[in-house]
Computed example of a mutant assay.
Amino acid sequence: MTALGALPVLFGRAMSRRSGDMLLGFAAGVMLSASYFSLILPGLGAAEGLYGSVAVAAGIAAIGIALGAAAVAALNHALPHEHFQTGPEGSDPHGLARIWLFVIAITIHNFPEGMAVGIGFGGGDLSNGFSLATGIGLQNAPEGLAVAVALMSQGYGRGRAFTIAALTGLIEPLGGLLGVWLIHVSVHILPIGLTFAAGAMLYIISHEIIPETHRKGNQERATAGFIVGLILMMVLDVTLG
Results as ranks from 00 to 15, higher is better:
2 T>P: 01
3 A>M: 09
4 L>V: 14
6 A>V: 09
6 A>G: 07
6 A>S: 12
8 P>V: 04
10 L>W: 13
11 F>Q: 00
11 F>D: 03
14 A>Y: 02
15 M>C: 06
16 S>K: 13
19 S>D: 09
20 G>P: 01
22 M>A: 15
22 M>Q: 12
23 L>E: 06
24 L>A: 14
24 L>R: 06
24 L>I: 14
25 G>C: 06
25 G>F: 06
32 L>T: 15
33 S>C: 07
34 A>C: 07
35 S>T: 12
36 Y>P: 00
37 F>I: 15
39 L>H: 14
39 L>I: 09
42 P>M: 12
43 G>H: 05
46 A>S: 14
52 G>L: 01
53 S>N: 09
54 V>A: 14
54 V>N: 04
58 A>D: 09
58 A>L: 15
63 I>M: 15
64 G>Q: 12
64 G>P: 12
64 G>L: 13
67 L>V: 14
68 G>W: 00
68 G>I: 00
68 G>Q: 02
71 A>I: 01
71 A>G: 00
71 A>Y: 10
72 V>D: 08
75 L>S: 09
76 N>D: 15
77 H>Q: 14
80 P>V: 00
83 H>E: 12
83 H>D: 05
85 Q>F: 08
87 G>L: 01
87 G>N: 03
91 S>M: 13
92 D>C: 01
96 L>A: 07
96 L>G: 02
97 A>D: 15
99 I>W: 09
104 I>F: 12
105 A>K: 10
105 A>S: 13
107 T>I: 15
107 T>Q: 02
109 H>N: 13
109 H>P: 07
110 N>Y: 04
110 N>T: 03
110 N>L: 02
112 P>R: 04
113 E>F: 02
113 E>N: 05
118 G>F: 05
119 I>D: 01
123 G>N: 12
123 G>C: 08
124 G>D: 07
126 L>P: 02
127 S>L: 11
129 G>R: 11
130 F>L: 15
130 F>W: 14
131 S>Q: 11
131 S>E: 07
134 T>Q: 00
136 I>L: 12
137 G>S: 13
137 G>T: 12
138 L>Q: 05
139 Q>N: 05
140 N>D: 04
141 A>G: 10
141 A>V: 10
146 A>E: 02
148 A>R: 08
150 A>C: 07
151 L>W: 11
154 Q>G: 01
154 Q>P: 00
154 Q>A: 11
155 G>V: 01
155 G>R: 04
157 G>S: 15
159 G>E: 13
164 I>D: 05
164 I>W: 05
165 A>M: 03
169 G>P: 03
170 L>Y: 04
170 L>W: 02
171 I>K: 01
175 G>A: 07
178 L>W: 08
179 G>S: 00
180 V>M: 15
181 W>H: 06
183 I>N: 13
183 I>G: 13
186 S>V: 01
186 S>A: 14
188 H>I: 12
193 G>E: 05
194 L>H: 08
195 T>G: 11
195 T>E: 11
198 A>P: 10
198 A>E: 09
199 G>R: 10
203 Y>A: 12
204 I>T: 15
205 I>E: 06
208 E>D: 14
208 E>Q: 10
210 I>N: 09
211 P>A: 04
213 T>M: 04
215 R>C: 04
216 K>V: 07
217 G>Q: 09
218 N>C: 12
220 E>T: 15
221 R>P: 00
223 T>Q: 11
230 L>I: 04
233 M>P: 05
233 M>A: 10
234 M>K: 03
239 T>Q: 14
240 L>R: 11
240 L>K: 08
240 L>C: 04
241 G>L: 14
